[in-house]
Write a protein that binds this DNA or RNA. Structure first.
Lengths: 167, 167
DNA sequence: TACGGCTTGTTCAAATTTGAACTAACCACT
DNA sequence: AGTGGTTAGTTCAAATTTGAACAAGCCGTA
């Protein structure tokens, strides 16, 4: 194994600030959503993703994949949303195993009612504090990171493809 | 109330990528830490913050504030770490109520043993994919966001200070 | 010294999240 | 049709996280 490359002062400052910002923002978002609509952030994201799609429906696995949450976690949250009448489950015609999560009319209204305040929080603490160039840089950075993680297989990091360990 | 300023395409792309990257990275970090040391990310951060300080100790409330977790959450995690012998509790001499979380020798060794792989993950999926300029921009962005959220009081957003509502 | 008002840390119940185990269904190939 | 290997979604137990309630200690002021 190679010697550890520790983080530089600048890198460390970035990483610590990133962690803090993420947690602080998450807390602000949760607080706002709870007060204004009784939704959690996870639930809001489910409604938002569904609303972006034709027929406002998505298969469970696909939705979980996009939200980066576990399948069981999604099952739980869809249950909560269903209980509140914001989402319905529909079996998939072409695949007997499949389940569509479908946004209801009321779910759509709830989302429309909640979105403005939610967007306001994201703007107030992040987006409106950035220059257009910073928004663009951040978009590029995050998109790169997502691509890297979606491409890389799970498990230990390798500098070379699996099975090529020197011996 | 003013009309909602929705996110532009670029802003939305940034926000969605940010959420995905955050969750994906968190998952990668959790997986690596679990495999290599049996620690959670929260626990690792506790050890890391303690190690940065003289005497490797911090008061509970201060530690919770820095990590952006609840006091009860910290109580729980310190309990876990104490059970594993990585941390000890010490009462504060100058304040009978106070409790210091103290990194033990074993905790220190655990951290040293674990840190290289942890840093490797953060590098592999984020830092090493950024140019020095991007690191700097990201540091600036995140630092700004943290400052904004630490300064702003909890509760609904206001464009003007409290008590100044027009009427 | 005694008295409110805060602050500290813990306990507790409730909500959420995850991975493992499981059932059912799909699919390629015989 | 039958078989083995995969995928979809749920159920379950265990771990974690939070806010509210609480007991104890601090502190300025009467």
């Amino acid at each position: 194994m190679s010697e550890t490359r520790w983080l530089s002062e600048s890198e460390m400052a970035m990483w610590v600030a990133y962690l803090s910002a993420t947690h602080l923002l998450e807390r602000r978002i949760e607080d706002q959503l709870k007060v204004d609509s009784g939704l959690t952030h996870a639930q809001y994201e489910i409604l938002a993703r569904l609303s972006e799609h034709p027929d406002a429906r998505l298969r469970m696995t696909e939705l979980a994949r996009r939200l980066i949450i576990s399948k069981s976690g999604l099952t739980y949250q869809i249950g909560q949303l269903e209980r509140r009448g914001l989402v319905t489950r529909t079996t998939c015609p072409s695949d007997e195993r499949g389940v569509f999560a479908v946004l209801t009319e009321e779910g759509s209204r709830c989302l429309e009612r909640t979105a403005p305040e939610h967007v306001a929080v994201v703007r107030a603490f992040l987006i409106d504090r950035l220059t257009p160039e910073e928004v663009e840089t951040m978009r590029r950075i995050m998109t790169k990171a997502v691509a890297a993680m979606e491409a890389a297989p799970a498990g230990p990091l390798r500098s070379s493809p699996p099975g090529k360990s020197p011996g």
